[in-house]
Simulated assay, not measured.
Amino acid sequence: MTYTSIWIAFAFVLIALLLSLWQRLGLEKEIAIGTVRSTLQLLVIGYVLQFVFHADSLLFILLIIAMMIAVASWNAASKGKKLRGIFWRIAISLSITELVTMGLLVTLGLVTPTPQYLIPMSGMIIGSSMIVCSLFLSHMNREVETSRGEIETLLCLGATPRQAVQAVLKRAVKASMIPTFDTMKTIGLVQLPGMMTGMIIAGASPVEAVRYQILIMLSFSSSAAVSAVLISMLSYRLWFTRDAMLHH
């Protein structure tokens, strides 16, 4: 694909802008900023990855993964702005999820430990886990507000914060994991995932592309569960004061 093709593809953005103007949605600024940012970010990371792939240095690989975790944590933390320290808890959750998932993939010999495999697969795992953490925070905020009376009653009866919020915590964890497993149910029938599609377009055998996609989707099930449980364990106390009362 040439740069001319990319310029032509901006016609799709123009369609979105025209529809926003026509329906008076007020999304023109968001569409423009999103388009410019995504284009520049992808171009920059393309050149960075090209350098890292040629360098084949473990330090560069770790720096790229650390950057991914930092950005993902910052993005997910925006769903819990009122929760002090939520960024670091998300970062810890994503780091452990990445370590466990990629560690197993490499240890079991399912992935070759080279930049060409480690960085793209880490990006997909971290991105999927970021969405899980974001969904958890959104659902947890909503569940706590909805069940405030129930939680405060349990606290008054002598329950610990963990005991009082346990039912709410379970619902939030479950809700954050559902989209991942719903996607797994329809993959290949409703949508052809990005990694598989990219490999096919690049000339790989569809069967080989499917094998890698199956590997990724199966690892997503583990990463979703690990990240959801970790963020729930690390963050539930943030909804309470030091005196074990709910924040208002």
Rank of each mutant, 00 (worst) to 15 (best):
S232H: 01
T153I: 07
A209C: 04
I151C: 02
K170R: 11
G203N: 02
M199R: 13
Q163H: 07
R148M: 04
P161W: 13
I201L: 10
V190W: 10
L192V: 12
D182S: 14
K185G: 10
S219L: 04
E145H: 08
S219D: 04
P193D: 15
T160D: 07
I200K: 09
A204H: 08
G158E: 12
G194L: 15
L230R: 05
Y236H: 10
R162T: 00
T183S: 14
I214Y: 07
V165A: 15
L192Y: 02
Y236P: 00
M233Y: 10
I187N: 06
T183P: 00
P193T: 14
Y212A: 08
A175G: 05
W239N: 01
I201A: 06
M177K: 10
Y236T: 02
K170V: 03
T160V: 06
V226R: 00
R162F: 03
G198Y: 03
G158Q: 09
Q191C: 07
A224E: 09
D182E: 15
I231A: 11
E208C: 09
W239D: 10
S222C: 12
A159F: 02
I231G: 05
A202E: 11
I200Q: 09
T186N: 08
I178H: 06
Y236K: 05
V229G: 00
P193C: 15
T153M: 07
V190F: 13
T153W: 05
L154I: 01
L192D: 07
M199D: 06
Q166D: 13
V210G: 13
E152S: 11
G158P: 00
S227P: 00
A209G: 06
A159D: 12
T183Q: 15
A225D: 05
V210T: 15
L154H: 03
A225M: 14
A167W: 14
A225F: 14
S147Q: 15
L189V: 13
L154D: 03
A225W: 03
L215Q: 01
E150N: 01
